[in-house]
Amino acid sequence: MRIWTAAFALVLGAACSGCAATAVRPWDRDLLAKKQMRFVPLPMEYAVDEHIYFSKEGSIGGHGVGGGGCGCN
């Protein structure tokens, strides 16, 4: 539980630490507006990858929550 609280504090701290970051004005967002400027640039491929790693490894998690399980043997 303590680790979970620490993780939550880390997330909150990361949010607040950006308060003094250099301002990025709306007219400076040309690059950020590109659809490839996302954490998951190719969502379909990412979903396929997550299914593979879920089936072959002991850990899961990342960008989402929940998820459909499978009887992957």
Partner: peptide, 14 residues
């Protein structure tokens, strides 16, 4: 962008 992996396994790829 975040919801693209809303369901991480067999996710709906937004």
């Amino acid at each position: 962008a975040a919801a693209c992996v809303l369901l991480a396994v067999g996710a709906p790829a937004m």
